[in-house]
Design a protein around this nucleic acid. Sequence first.
RNA 1: GCCCAUCUGGCGGAAUUGGUAGACGCGCUGGAUUUAGGUUCCAGUGGCUUCGGUCGUGGGGGUUCAAGUCCCCCGGUGGGCACCA
Length: 876
Amino acid sequence: MCGTIKAFQQAAVTDPSRYRPQEIETHWQQRWRDDQLDRTQEPSDSRPAYYALSMFPYPSGSLHMGHVRNYVITDVVARQQRMLGRRVLHPMGWDAFGLPAENAAIERGVDPAQWTEHNIAQMRAQLERLGLSIDWSREVTTCKPEYYRWTQWLFLQFWEAGLAYRKEATVNWDPLDQTVLANEQVDGEGRSWRSGALVEKRKLKQWFLNITAYADPLLDDLQDLPHWPERVRTMQANWIGRSTGAELDFPVVDSDGAPTGASITVFTTRPDTLYGVTYLVLAPEHPLVPSLTTAEHRLTVEAFCDLVAAESEQERTAEDRPKRGVAIGASVRNPASGEIIPLWIADYVLADYGSGAVMGVPAHDQRDFLFARQHELPIRQVIIPEGSDPTAFAGGAWTEPGVMIHSGPLEGMPSEEAKGRIVAEAEAGGWGRSRVQYRLRDWLISRQRYWGCPIPMVHCPQCGDVPVPADQLPVLLPTGVALEGRGGSPLGQLASWLEVNCPSCGQPARRETDTMDTFMCSSWYYLRYADPWNEQAPFSQEAVNQWLPVDQYVGGIEHAILHLLYSRFFTKVLRDRGLLNFSEPFDRLLTQGMVQGLTYRNPQNGKYIAPADVADPNDPRDPNNGERLIASFDKMSKSKYNGVDPSSVVDRYGADTARMFILFKAPPEKDLEWDDADVEGQHRFLQRIWRLVEGAADMADAGAAESSDLASTEKDLRRAVHTAIQEVSSDLEGDLQLNTAVSELMKLANAMTTLLPEVRSTVAQEAIRTLVLLLAPFAPHLAEELWHRLAPSTPFTSVHQQSWPVVDATALARDTIPLVIQVKGKVRGSLEVPADADASTLEQLALQSDVAAKWLEGQPPRRVIVVPGKLVNLVP
RNA sequence: GCCCAUCUGGCGGAAUUGGUAGACGCGCUGGAUUUAGGUUCCAGUGGCUUCGGUCGUGGGGGUUCAAGUCCCCCGGUGGGCACCA
């Protein structure tokens, strides 16, 4: 037997047909293209549909590792689903409008369209080398008229539904990119998601989509997305920020306490604290401030408003600063108690949330408490913790529920109950109503830039905003526009384009010169893939309803709010327009982690050093000054010299190694540390498979021993094979645990290395065949090559057209199993027992074991716990 | 401050309903093959150990025959929201 193993290993080592990924990969990629293997099967095919989708890239010009990770994950899913017998839609496209193209135009004088096209060609070529089973015939490019025509058409759908409007509002202005931004596109520090510049507030007339009208369904339907990461759902829920409360009206009174007719409406989530209101505060920008300010307060109020106006949003909203404000002289009457209370303005009240006015309840709100203390306003407690002394003052704000005091008819009532009581009374008395408030703002979609989808509207002096009729779409983006990046919409310079006749009255009018936020283009591309050649509509109902929702969507966490929220909004609006019949676009969502690069920096001067320049990774030193470097893994970027170019990896090891490495190194949703040493290791595994299959094929021809006493080895091998099928399948079909799926392949290869030389050829063939089939989604080229070396077929049938292997339950069964013997919960030994032994037999076997003899010291155990198939626990 | 995720060997990471912690791989150590290096193969690899054991999944308590897993308290890291009334 030893001789056999030896011969087998020798054969493997000296096999002249080495694994040469570069040759194999280009060969098979060509073959798959020629045979149109990746074409989506038409709906006439009765097999169930499966839609595997990666977030499409911006065509920056070069593929980075994050892209590779994204597309490889989706590709594994798509390939396995095909083998499972589904017809699979696995498309790719380009999010092709956007600022980098325009900036390139400004800096280098190139045409944005050409620049984009060139980048797409370059990236497509890089993608094709990865062996992704993408149906390129359905490629979608958002900057092409045949696509953006329908983006415009969809905009008109929003317009018709009353969900698109133009309004003057305070908006985010990116001074670097010279355009406005949506709220979602400004990060927590007030920086642009793209340029990183601190945004400024400007008052401008802009186009919005009324996403807030869908706040409730967008929030509530998150519950229908159990296969989305909890994290993403929470982020969206936070972003929408629904709070339930009431609007209460406080009538303004004159110095005699008589109503003036005006009133201030506040929004509160705590109507129960109404009797504790000791003042009212308005935002300095509140429209009633100038008219309500009394003469003797005018100077201080104006000075204060100027002061606040001069501050940036950041300064203004910093939480840990003193709350400043001034009284404006006017007073209001508490609608419940009748008490007359002063009116203030303060910088901690935001003009654009609620009604821009707040009732001050210092005893029960931390901010109000600080403000009242600073400005010596009265603090009146109206809620006390249950069972506490009503005369004791806590010294801070009590913000928890409790029992009402000093609250007229509410005295003694639980505060939660008082909430409803106040609202009911307010509604009956006409001075308030229950109200839901959202943090979410309407989506600002205009951009003052050139390289985007023109908004298909015309401004007519007679008719106002008039939509371009659908049959006149697309409104083509004009060419030959001078781009300077100086601000102002570039389209406004082009008189020939700008001046049109009003579609409604025919009189001279002007086109809208803003273009759309590129997120408009990406909010529906997944629908277009279902029907990409349609010239009558963005998509047919039939096509989208049969392919969507997307079964598996894969992309970066950076779109947790942006793209994913907008797309959900689009889907819901289109559903309500009767254009499709589902409410959520993406059934399963995987947010893949970042790919990080090995980064070295000098602790003294902070300089980054390229890993290639570091001689010894175990003791990295700066080649310039010999300083010891700090090694870490960081997001790949040029400035850190830590980027790894996917093409260079493919050149060196082949796409299959790159794919396997990315899948194996970390769970898909976690960050992945790219380490060349590990890539090498992954490459060795593929080489090992190559030798294993090649060597075994020779050996099988020679014929292994046919004696029956090898049966137990054969059983072992078959069990390994079918365990692998079971584990890889559940990893792929469950939560996409692709790293453990790869490790199962490794386990199978390990088992085969030891057992193959000892089994008969039928068993060996099953093992080899299964290994290649299981490998196919992960390393498609290697699997294909081995498949054809094992059994060249005419006509050609690809490994990727084979059925996914099925678990044979009998192969998993075993005659004996190891039984763990514990003493008081600690493992003390194990025993090989018949697999079908019942509990009492197991107990007997355990009690008779050496372990029991040693640890029980002759005493019978007090208790015995038997877990059949697993263990026996003896408790002395 | 609120919310979410996360914490396991030198490293990346595995562990069904509570049931053998560290699968698989990288790295490392020793050996075989080789003129040598590399490759390949074999063996070993959590700490401590008097070699019997014992301690070990961020820390501290608890429940249980049995806890990485369940409960309570505390902490670290990453992320989201945040003067949102």
